[in-house]
């Protein structure tokens, strides 16, 4: 059975299809934030499901697909920044 993940994105152009990307996704079983190296696509029926949410939480209608190549350490999601907003 396909695993289900989700990620938050407003502009789909920032989620390149068919290329290896490092993404913060959530496992929808326990909602942990996990870092993955993965390939995503808007079409296809193989691979796991990747639900997409807008950055304020609204769910998009149609899920994408995700092939997780490797789960990375959580620290891979660290963004170096001093900005506080």
């Amino acid at each position: 059975m396909a695993k289900q993940y989700d990620t938050f994105v407003d502009d789909l152009a920032t989620l390149p299809e068919g290329k290896e990307v490092v993404l913060a996704v959530r496992n929808l079983d326990d909602f942990k934030t996990i870092a993955v190296k993965a390939v995503v696509s808007s079409t296809g029926e193989e691979d796991d499901l990747l639900w997409l949410r807008f950055s304020r939480g609204r769910l998009r209608d149609k899920p994408w697909r995700i092939k997780v190549i490797e789960e990375l350490p959580f620290e891979a999601l660290f963004i170096e920044s001093s900005v506080l907003q």
Partner: peptide, 26 residues
């Protein structure tokens, strides 16, 4: 210090989910 990871969004005390998922302290 100087590290952020995406956090939120969250339904907040204002009665809305206003702030987006953004890099925030961890």
């Amino acid at each position: 210090p100087n590290v952020r990871v995406v956090e939120g969004p969250f339904g907040e005390y204002t009665g809305y989910r206003t702030s987006p998922r953004d890099p925030r302290p961890v």
